[in-house]
Simulated assay, not measured.
Amino acid sequence: MNTEDTLTYWTACMKAADLTDKTIRERLIFIRQLARGVDDLYTVTRRELIMWTAEQNWSNSTRVHRRSGLHTFFAWMQDEQLRLDNPAYRLPRVATRKREPNPFTIDEINQLLQGGIYFRTRVMVALHYYLGLRVSEIAAVNGATDIDWAARTLSTIGKGRKPATLPVPAAVWPLFLKMPRDGYWFPNRTANKLFAAGEGHIMGNSVSGLIGEACKRAGIKHRPHDLRASLATEMHDAGVSDFVVQRGMRHSNMDTTTLYLKLRPEGIRHGFEALPALALPDRSGRKRAQPLAA
């Protein structure tokens, strides 16, 4: 069985496991990248995998993800008796570095919106910030199937194929009224991995690219995804309960939400100032020991 036959079979196994198309596509891209960088997927050794991964210019989070991906693929090969061993077993553990949340400030978002970006890009920014949609969810918005125009809600499919229906804030509803009530809001003019030209919607990376380029032109040093951090941070600073913030972000647990929520110094100061006051004496009240008589 050659590499393409192996990947065709692996694709079938992933589809049988009901993995999402996005997950399957990303895994295949990664393993094909690996296949181009090593001699043979059937004979590559642990040492060769270590040398190959060390050469890649990956971020810390990507390195963590790729290490897991290598183990998953070679464990599958071993289970299918395509290899006797798993060369990815016990690859060096990646020292994870927690990335501090980096939300846009409101001034930066306004600067971005007023920086000459086109109307549909402004809508993308609004969907990112006001509803916390991810770029892949923004790309797929359909006026006919996703928007309840009477109830003012937007339905989407999030990570893990989790459906969600989100209330549309009043501040952004006027933008919705200017968007099509039928069809995709962001149709693809050129062919992509999902649709032929003009037959579907753009990809999430196109949304990220458009907002990212707008940020560069405006001199704003943020990733588009940081708009989700702005949503979490601004809701928290406005006194919204952490539970509501978590639900608004559509996170399964609060630990994930804290990766987006930035506690600003003034918020921490407010917390310190809320502590009950203590009676701090000016002196200890202890008597000094008398010197011993000669």
Rank of each mutant, 00 (worst) to 15 (best):
R288A: 12
Y9Q: 11
V141T: 05
N2I: 05
R181C: 03
M249K: 00
G239R: 00
Y260G: 02
E26D: 13
L261A: 00
T156K: 02
G204V: 13
L259M: 09
Y129L: 06
Y130L: 12
E80M: 09
L34D: 07
R67K: 15
A294P: 03
A95S: 15
I202T: 04
N205L: 13
G115M: 03
S61A: 11
A151M: 14
W185A: 00
D40N: 15
G132L: 00
R46Q: 14
G271N: 08
A238V: 06
P174I: 10
A279W: 04
I117M: 14
T23W: 02
G143I: 08
R247E: 14
P180Y: 05
S136G: 00
T156P: 11
W173T: 04
A95V: 14
G115V: 03
R189K: 03
A232W: 04
I202L: 09
I106E: 11
G198M: 09
T72H: 10
K159W: 09
V244T: 15
V123N: 01
E80C: 05
F243Q: 00
G271E: 12
M254I: 11
P92C: 11
L278I: 01
D182N: 03
T257G: 01
M254S: 09
D242V: 15
D40L: 05
R223D: 15
H65P: 01
R223K: 14
V94G: 08
R36N: 07
V64R: 05
Q78C: 13
T165I: 15
R47M: 06
I24Y: 04
G204D: 12
W149E: 11
D255A: 13
N60Q: 12
I138V: 14
D237A: 15
P276L: 12
L84C: 08
M124Q: 07
T258Q: 00
I220G: 00
Q81G: 01
I106Q: 06
L280P: 04
G115K: 02
Q290G: 06
L278A: 08
F272A: 05
P167H: 04
Q81C: 07
A229W: 01
A232K: 00
G204R: 06
H71V: 10
G248Q: 10
P281N: 12
D146M: 07
P163V: 10
A150N: 14
P187V: 08
D18V: 12
T156H: 07
P224T: 13
L263V: 08
A214K: 01
F195C: 08
G239N: 01
Y260P: 04
P163M: 07
T121A: 05
A197R: 01
A151Q: 13
K262L: 15
L263Y: 07
